[in-house]
Every structure is written in C-alpha cells, then in structure tokens.
Write a protein that binds this DNA or RNA. Structure first.
Lengths: 296, 296
DNA sequence: AGGATGTTTTTCAGAAATGAAAAACCTCAG
DNA sequence: CTGAGGTTTTTCATTTCTGAAAAACATCCT
C-alpha cells in the first residue's frame, strides 16, 4: 500500500464530476460504499477535507477544486495510454455460453451487455452442454454450479426459480397434462423432477426449449420453465406454485487469468448487473397472468 | 477493480527504472512477489508483454519502452500534487510510545526511522505504562500484545527473547545472585518469573531498566533483559539460556483511522523493517560474549 | 565443479478491501 | 404532515490481495 494512491486520485476525479458516490459508481467498477471509504482515506492522506458531504451528494471544497485541477493534468497524461491501448487492435471476441432461456434473456437485453462503442465483440454459444472454459472454448459460462477447479473463478448472480406454465387463458391450468423437455441423449433436471412426481401424465416430449415453449403455447399442456422466461411471455401463465426442488443459484464462470482482461471484466460486470436488476423476476416474485399474485 | 489501474502504471515505472522487482520493492511499500503479480496483471490488461523476464531482472520490451514514455507524462502530471501536499504544511508529529529498552534500541537506529527530509517529526514517549491510542495519547505503541479493540490495528514484528545477563568477565556468571526489576507500584513480568523460580536469591532491586543494567554492569549479579538489549552491550554477557516463559511477540499498534496517514504509515513500515532486520538479535540468536555460541 | 549469493516465482495463511444488505437521513411531492 | 425516492453510511460475510517462506534458477567466485 502506497502513500498517495493514483487510483484514488482517479476515483476522486470521477466523484467530483459526478457530484456524488452513486454517479461515480456507475462509471467505475466499484460500489458506492467502497468509493466512500476510499475518498475518506484519500482525505486522510491529504490531510484536508476535499468534499462537503450531504445526503444529496458530494461537493468540492476549495482544496478539492485545487486538487481536481491537478488530477485533470494526470488524466490528460493518461489519455495517450488509453488511446495507445485501443489503436490498431482488432476487437477481441468474448465468447459467452449459456442455456437457451438464458441466452434468450440476454439477447433481449443485449444493449445492457454490449454497445457499438465497446472495443470488443460478443460471441454467443447457446448450448445446454457445458463448454470447457479451462481449455478456452469460451471466456464466460453461465452455469448453475460454481467452478470446481482452482484455475476457474465463479461469481454468483441470482437465484433462479422454476414453475409450471400453461397457455394464457387455458381452461384448466392445473389439471392439464405435462409437456416434458428432454431428448434421448440428455434428460434435463426438470424431466427428472417430472418423473419423480406422483401421478403425472405426460402427453408430449420436446427436445429443445423453444419447441417445448411452442407446444405449451399451443395449449397442449403444462411445461416447466425458469421464471425469468415464463413470466416474461404474455402468451403463458403460471399453472402452479414455484418448484422448490429445481431452484438453483446462477454463476458466471470464467478462467482466473481472464479476470484482468478488461473486455471479459466488463461483460461479467454487466451480466451481473443485468441479472441483479431482474432478481425478483428470476426468483419468481413477478408472476405473470395469475390473479392474486403477491410480491415478495 | 478497474480496467487499467493507475497504481499499476506507477508501479510499472518503478520496475522499469529499477530493472527488476527487488529494486522496485525498495522504493515502493510493496513486496517483490506482489509487484510481480501486479506486473503480470498489467500485461494481461494491456494485452502485450511489457517485460523480458530473467533471473537477473526485468528488461523492457519495445512496447514497454513505449508505455514508459507515456507513464512518465503521468508522473509529470502527478508531481504538482506531491508538491502541493508538502508545501505550506507544518510538519506533524508522530508520537511513539515504547518501553525503555525498545526506545533505546530505536534511538540507536534513529536514522532508520526518521531523516531530516521527512515531512514529519517523531515524539518519543518512553514509558512502561500503556498509553491510550484510542484516545490519541500516541499514534504508535510498541507492545507485547495485539490490539484488543476493533478500532485499533496491530502488526506483529518479531519474537522477543529474554535471557539473564551478567557483567562481562564476571567470575561466576551462573552462580551469582539476581538483580530484580520492579517498583512498589508495578511488578514486571521478569520479576514475577524470578519469584517463581526455585531457590532464587535476590541481592538487589532496581526500579528502572537503566538502573538494573547499571547494577548488573557493576557486577552485583544477574539480571533479566531482552536479548536485543543484552546482546548489544559489550559490558555484558549471557548468564544462562533463553527464558522461554518470557518470550513474547512484539506488536506495532495504531488507530485504524491513522493507517492511511502517510507519516504514520511510513514510521510503521520503517519500524517493522528495522526490527525484521534484527530478528535474529531479538530472538536471541546472536548471543554476545559467551564461548561456543551457535547461530540459529 | 561446487558453494554462495541474488533474483524471480510459487504456495499458503492472514490481512485488507469489497459488495450486499440494512440503516439512517434528507428532499420533495401530494 | 406523511410517504416515496434517492443518497450516504454502517455492518458483516465474502473475496481479493498481500507478505512470509520456500522453491527454483542463474550468475559469480573460489
């Protein structure tokens, strides 16, 4: 730990411009409490108050104004480095593997994950299989288990709940038969759950999630889906309570070495923010199309 | 964690100038392994190797040379901030409390702790009492126990060993009587230890450590001292083995809030380095004046 | 050829920093 | 006056980073 941290000076400039911690947190990959603590520490190193604090934000003192002018000179000094980093570099691709529903959800929120200003590209690999991150098949995997080897890192995001869905306006939602998801090669967790229930009657099988949804939409019967998919579909409604046995924690998994790559870092952070913002939807707290729905 | 760390750029410049990790560690308050990891992470962010690594040090690649030129511009931008920090500021005092032997040891190595270039001053408070750091009686306390309250921080330094000493060339070192340290108000740990021994014969009491040393030097008998004092005194020699019961770990204790104050940080770091460099002496591994002394 | 010295790299336990969640507080609109 | 909304601050569990110690390797001297 050094005396005067250049990183703290950079953060200081962001807080000064944003007028507070929350605005600075949006432009930095740091949380507001962390930024608050670092500004406090910076003031202790400097020995003078830099901010006047209020509940409406942070304003600069005279000393803070003076320091900001100087830090802007450092920012000017840093700009050639940022430009040097991006010039002449082909934009790398961040390969992202996710299950069908998750990929669909991300695709519908794509602007939250990537914009044309980004110096990288996104490569979706939509698959129910688990691709090998350790051997660089993808950079980021969205999984329902944490990484199990030491050279992978995982970051939990949200709880994913599952529930049965049926076509909207189905005459007998909880009395209809089931549509199961699975193929001859792979039996899904929801298919295993289904087989474990007493007195279940399966009227159809689908081998891809899209096919299952289409069959359920057509009114053939009930199907199990994650809530972040089922509860966004205006053609579906709940056909029973949440299925506790299928609830799982979602993880963003990446190689340990890749965590410092800025494009991987940025995608990871954005995915995390995206899912966090839809945490209620994912947990099943926003049921669609059922009367008397309660909010958790 | 941000993408391109300004702190890492600063460290990079130090490594480039020093030609390696070890030299950079001397000018930064970071260890060589830490600097090595940070340079690796910086290269991953940059996407290009910056160094050619060898066992004789780090040399810059062409890309590294290019980056160094740019970072020097940031250093130029940072210089007005460093100057602004030091200009017009009355030098603060760092108050340091330590026991007599420890204060004596530090005073003899004062150039390791303070120089006239430092923008602060040192205030010794030599006492066997424990001064209150939480209520700002001192900034740094050197103690034999870690901090016990949440708002204090402690950093262990070295193991302190104790042994009995006698005047050099005493005719009967291990057969002489004891000189005890203590006063009517405060019985020291070594005095308690003495009373707990079988068949001990105390011929004198001293109420200050300096007085005890003077009496022992005069040949009156054996006295218990910490090894970093006894083994530095050419007028004394060991009069028995190390006293395991009295061994203790030394701690540098400070207020949590003060850790970011650069002058407190600097003194703490220097004291830590000073004691670490004399770790063998403190542990009793450098006995003075006894024949057949072994090196640990 | 072998030992000493000095550097970087790796491993691992502990310290420090972080973010999530909650608490606290202020402002503004109804 | 009250409730909603937005911000900062505090608490605590978790994650990340650090330094100590050891390992590995290269160079230099005898």
């Amino acid at each position: 730990m050094k005396n005067l941290s250049w990183d703290d000076l950079q953060i200081f400039a962001h807080v000064a411009r944003a007028g507070g911690l929350t605005g600075a947190a949006e432009t930095l990959s740091l949380s507001a409490p962390t930024i608050g603590r670092r500004m406090l520490a910076l003031e202790q190193v400097i020995g003078k108050p830099l901010f006047v604090r209020s509940r409406t934000g942070y304003a600069l003192t005279d000393k803070g104004q003076s320091l900001l002018r100087k830090v802007k000179a450092m920012e000017a000094g840093a700009r050639p480095i940022e430009e040097w980093l991006t010039s002449g570099v082909e934009r790398p691709a961040v390969r992202l593997s996710a299950g069908t529903w998750t990929a669909n959800f991300i695709a519908e929120n794509f602007a939250r994950v990537w914009t044309s200003n980004d110096p990288f590209r996104i490569c979706f690999k939509t698959t129910e299989a688990r691709l090998d991150i350790a051997h660089r098949e993808v950079e980021i995997g969205i999984r329902n288990q944490p990484a199990e080897s030491g050279n992978l890192a995982s970051r939990p995001t949200v709880e994913i709940a599952f529930a049965p869905y049926v076509a909207r306006n189905h005459p007998d939602p909880e009395g209809s038969e089931w549509v199961s998801l699975g193929s001859e090669e792979a039996v899904t967790r929801s298919a295993r759950w289904l087989l474990a229930q007493e007195d279940t009657s399966i009227c159809a099988w689908a081998n891809t999630p899209h096919t299952l949804r289409d069959v359920v939409r057509a009114g053939a019967g009930r199907g199990v889906m994650p809530c972040f998919s089922g509860d966004r579909d205006p053609q579906l409604m709940r056909a029973g309570p949440l299925i506790a046995e299928l609830a799982e924690t979602q993880y963003l998994v990446m190689h340990n070495d890749d965590r410092h790559r800025p494009e991987v870092r940025k995608v990871i952070d954005r995915l995390h923010a995206l899912f966090r913002d839809h945490a209620e939807l994912c947990r099943g707290d926003r049921p669609i199309g059922t009367s008397g729905a309660e909010k958790a």
